[in-house]
Every structure is written in structure tokens, then in C-alpha cells.
Design a protein around this nucleic acid. Structure first.
Lengths: 339, 339
DNA sequence: CATACCGGGACATTTTGTGTCCATTAGCTG
DNA sequence: CAGCTAATGGACACAAAATGTCCCGGTATG
């Protein structure tokens, strides 16, 4: 495979460049469809005119449809994207990055997508797509999938597609309310994902702050109890990883707690737990749902997080999650290696 | 592999064409080196100017050397040709042809090279090269190779290269004199091939026409007897296939024999045997050396024949040689399928 | 020593690729 | 309902690359 690519390079040095360019265009169209030339060209950083030529070519090859609403990829186009994915990863060196990260963090599996979600928002979507593909590979019949909140997870939900095979999937929020935007709450994302996947879902309606007494009585509530049991018996968990301080501030965390978090050098956050550089838990938000001990027993755990700014957090969290699959982006991956 | 090529075809069809063009140029240079632009351009059917641009490119890539004597491929160039051979066969559809012919004739293996040796003489050389490669794959230590005559076999001899691995190869002519040009006689070709391969050889010096008595006494001659035994114990036979009538006429065959051959509808000829459409032997030239029964027992039998005009003969002969490997060209292959 | 073939320089011409500007249309919003 | 925005696609000028054409000097070979 590699020799073949090298030989092609020798005989046609700019072949790979052109192929990468076209592939990238197609990929972006898929990501942002329907989309116009202008937006796309500024996004890709190429002049509108050359994009236009390429678009015409792709249209002639029947890889994209172009209408007055914008461009979108055809079935054939997405087939092609799928077929070339592996090769393009190899060519652009992402495959290599994946291997390096995998051995660096010593984890089960790593998927790296191109770009940096700090710089370009659409990269999150690409991670979302990768995550969905990863999920579909691992899902078997009658699975229960627990998901958390966050913008990254929202992107995953957005990219979810209906399962072709006749699999019954039940989506549940991994944990109770963690005080974020409604849009990025686990409940919302859970519902959205289930809708897109044509699956079922259950929600966990619990307030953020709860007295111990109320907590105890809620837990006994049959409706709640049932969901909690589903969560605990889930065989897949999809979650994001956040920067500790950022997450704490985004949630309406009381002043003293933030101080505590800072004092204990927390750098990473995932489903309500805060971790220091060594991957040790230094703080925990009290809420129902899945607990860290439970996560360790779940068959498939997929962590999704990207952007150079999150490299530190990813590294810290992964220190205690060797059993997880990591889906990240080039920006974070390069930063991880650079350190 | 196939999906990858299909994807590339879809994503950069024009580039694949260029790649094919450059590959073809390189291939031809290898075949005819050292060669000048003019001859090469007329051979390839492209204008001299565009060839010149390509040549410049190939030179810059260090794939060919160009001197006042002409152009020749570098080591790197021949490496590349080897690495890309399989892929180019797929791209140009030759791989497909091979599969079709293989199942059509139901034989052991088929190799098809580009071109038609009826139209372009150098295609024979390419078949020769393919044959040599095929031989090298199959040869083990201390092999005895029996070869026949004919222009095609002469091309094989011309393309023979010294064996890298330390293998002792002994070349012998498959059968006695069959009345052709000296240049295309088995003895000559045998010697030439051995020289090029840096191997040893033995010849079979027997006159064409011999009375039965003389034949019997020759057979007892120790020098002859030894060679005959070598021939019979050979583990590889390389032979051509001819059109029956053409072969009969080329040899100084007596009138009545030609009549007999025609009457019995012979279409193919191989090492002195004439076959009808069904692959049945209808006539045989009486000479010493390997007999058809012996051939069937030989481990590796390679038949080399190309050109659309030989399609019929190939088809007929192969009907009784399912155990053979066929090396042919595009012209013959397409004609075979067309029927 | 002559000749035929070799590569390569030079330049006009054609083809292709890009930059720039604008016409037209469909859908959305105020 | 009207105006606005964002979409595609046509047109044309200009630059760059590919190709056609002609020719020159070197060198191997008979």
C-alpha cells in the first residue's frame, strides 16, 4: 500500500495534492450541506474560482448535487468518501498520529480527524461523524447507550444517522442535570440523538441542586429508579472531556467549590468528575446516574474531545481510562505529542 | 485495492490517464533502450513534443537517464515499473481480461500484456519479459528448461536476464530440427537464452529428415541419448503456439502433408504437433525430443503466443492443455473473448 | 571523415486555468 | 408582499502552461 502510494507520487507528484484537495472539498460539502460556494471557499481557504472549477468537476462525476439551495453530496459521493477515508488518513499522516497517540496514552483505540476544533468549528462535526461510525461498529443488538452533555456531544448527536441494521438502541443520559445550557444538557442531547438514530430514549428529570432528603426520596421514585437502572446497565458510554476550570465556571458552581477545584490542581472534567494531572479524582459533582466505578465496567467507553486547548485535559483524563476509545482532532493530537 | 482504484478513477480520471501515459513511456523505454525521441514517439503514437515534455519530467524524477546514445531507465525507474505493474494492469483492465480468459479456457494461469503483436512488434518483447518473470517465479534449484522455436520464443530469449538467486539452470531444445530459419530454431534460441541467463545448455543436433534406420542409429548415439534423457526429465517447458497452415508452409512441409493437414482442419501447431479446433492431434512431425505425452507430465508448462490472428490457434491448443500457463497479449485476448 | 541519429534551445501558437464582474433566481424575513 | 440575501452560472480578460515548429551542435558508427 505504502509502496504503491510512493510510486504514484513519483510518477505524478501533484496527484496526491489534487486528490486531497478534492477529497477535502467533498468532505466539507458533506459536513455543511447544503452550502454555497462562497462560504465553502472561505472555509477551505481557496479562491472561489478554483473551487468553482472543482465543483463543476465533482458535479460531472456525479459526486455532488448542486441546486439553488447549495451543494450536497450524492450517494455515490458519500460512498467514495467512505472508501477513501483510510487511504486519505494514511496520506495526510493522520494514521501515524493515531498510532503515536495510542502508544503515548496507552489506550484501547484512537481516532484522529483533520483540523483543530478550536480554530474551525466544523471539525467538531467531523469528530461527531467519526464517533457515530465508531459507535456503529461496536453496537450490537439491543444496546443501551449513555451520553453526557457538552458542545462536542451535541455535535455527535447532530451527525447521528439512523441505524441500517435492525438494532434496537435505547439512549439514556449518563447523569443528572449538570447546570449547562439547555442545548448542551445530557437530556437534550440524548433525545436528539435518539431521534436522529430512530431509536428510543428515556430522560432523567432531576433538578441540579437537591437536599439529601429530597435526593433520597427521588431515588425511590419508580420512574426515576427505572431510568437509573437502565443507565447502570448500559453497555456503551459516550462522553466529552472538558477543561476543569472552564467547565466549573460554565456551570453555576459556587465560589468555594471553584476555589477547591483550583487548589487541588484539577485540569480535566468528565461527567461531573474533576481530575488532576495524574488522573486522580479531586472533586465530584453530586448527581444521580452513572458513577466513575460504573464506567469502568462498561463494555464500550468512547471519549470525544478535540482542540489544542483540550490536550492537557485529555492527557489527564486518559491516565485513568486505558480502557476507553478516544476520538479527537489533529490540533489536540499534535499538542499532545509536542509536550 | 479495486475499490481504491475505482475511487481514484472517480476522483481524478484525467490524472490516471496521465499516469498511464507516463507508465507506458517508461515501459517502452525499458523495452527499447537506448532509444531516441523520434522513434519512441512514432511507436507510441504521440507527438514528439509532448513526449519531450514527459521525458524531461521523467528525467527530473530520476527515472530515466538520457545520454547522447538515447534514453534508458534507471534502477529507480525499473523499481517503479515493477511496483506499479499490478496496479496499471487493473487500471487498464488487463487484470479483468486475464480473469475472463482464465475462466473461458479453464487453464491454470493467464498473463495478458498490453498491445497486439500483430500490429506492433515490440509487444512480443513485452510478452517475453512477462514470460521471463513468470519463469523466475516458478524456477527452483537445478531446473531443466526445454524451449521450442519461433519468433515469439526468440523474443523470450532476448528478454532473458541473469538469475539473481544462485540457481543452476540447464536449457535444452524441446525437440529436434523443425526446419525453420536458423534464427528461430529451438537450438539457436536455447543457446541464446542460456547465454543471457548465464546458465548452461545442451543442443540437439539432428537433421530434419531422417530415414528410419538412421533415426534408430542416431538414437543410440551416446551424445544424443544423453540430451534426449535430459529433455525428457525437464521440469519446465516453454513453447509457442502457431497457426497450423502458416507453420506448415513456413517449414518446408511436403505438398501431400499440407493437404492432409488442411483436410483434417488443423488450426493450431505446437512443438511439431498439429491440432484441430477441438484440441485433438491430427498430425505430427516426426522428430526426436519431447512428445505430447511427456509434456503433460512436466511440472511447469508455459505457452507464449499473441496477436489477434493467433486467437483461434490458442483456443484450440488450450483445449487440451488445462495444466498450462498462457502468456498472451491484449489483441489475442480480446479476440478470444469476442468469439 | 561523413552521415545519421541523438538531445536540447528558442519561439510562436493554442489551450487551459484563474481572477473579476455581473445576471438571474429562489427562498426567507420583516 | 416586497426587499434582501445567498445561491448558481455565464462572460470575458489575462496569465500560465502545453504543444507545434524549426533548427543547432554533438557524437557514435560505418
Amino acid at each position: 500500500m505504502q509502496t504503491l502510494i510512493d510510486a504514484q507520487k513519483k510518477l505524478l507528484p501533484d496527484l496526491l495534492e489534487i486528490m486531497q484537495k478534492r477529497y477535502q472539498i467533498l468532505q466539507h460539502i458533506r459536513l455543511m450541506q447544503p452550502i454555497g460556494r462562497r462560504v465553502l471557499s472561505t472555509n477551505l481557504g481557496i479562491s472561489e474560482r478554483v473551487l468553482r472549477s472543482e465543483v463543476q468537476f465533482l458535479k460531472e462525476q456525479n459526486l455532488i448535487d448542486v441546486s439553488s439551495a447549495g451543494m450536497s453530496v450524492t450517494l455515490e459521493g458519500s460512498e467514495l468518501l467512505k472508501n477513501l477515508e483510510d487511504m486519505m488518513k494514511e496520506v495526510s499522516g493522520l494514521k501515524d498520529l493515531e498510532k503515536q497517540i495510542k502508544s503515548l496514552l496507552d489506550i484501547k483505540d484512537v481516532i484522529v480527524v483533520a483540523g483543530d476544533s478550536d480554530l474551525s468549528p466544523w471539525v467538531k462535526k467531523e469528530m461527531g461523524r467519526a464517533c457515530v461510525a465508531c459507535m456503529k461498529e461496536r453496537l450490537t443488538h439491543q444496546s443501551i447507550v449513555a451520553v453526557t452533555g457538552g458542545t462536542t456531544l451535541a455535535a455527535v448527536a447532530e451527525m447521528m444517522t439512523p441505524e441500517l441494521k435492525q438494532i434496537d438502541i435505547l439512549f439514556v443520559p449518563a447523569r443528572g442535570g449538570l447546570g449547562e445550557d439547555v442545548k448542551n444538557q445530557a437530556n437534550t442531547i440524548c433525545a436528539r440523538m435518539a431521534e436522529k438514530a430512530m431509536g428510543n430514549y428515556r430522560l432523567l428529570h432531576v433538578p441540579d441542586q437537591l437536599s439529601d432528603e429530597a435526593y433520597q426520596s427521588m431515588i425511590e421514585e419508580p420512574a426515576i429508579k427505572e431510568v437509573l437502572e437502565l443507565i447502570r446497565s448500559s453497555n456503551m458510554v459516550i462522553h466529552g472531556i472538558g477543561d476543569a476550570i472552564t467547565m466549573a465556571e460554565r456551570r453555576k458552581t459556587p465560589r468555594e467549590e471553584i476555589e477547591k477545584i483550583k487548589q487541588r490542581h484539577a485540569v480535566a472534567e468528565a461527567f461531573g468528575y474533576y481530575f488532576n494531572q495524574e488522573g486522580e479524582v479531586v472533586h465530584k459533582v453530586k448527581t444521580m446516574g452513572i458513577q466513575l466505578e460504573d464506567v469502568k465496567k462498561v463494555e464500550h467507553v468512547i471519549a470525544v474531545a478535540g482542540g489544542a486547548s483540550k490536550a492537557k485535559a485529555i492527557k489527564a483524563y486518559m491516565k485513568q481510562a486505558h480502557h476507553s476509545v478516544l476520538i479527537t482532532d489533529e490540533g489536540a493530537a499534535r499538542e499532545l505529542i509536542r509536550e
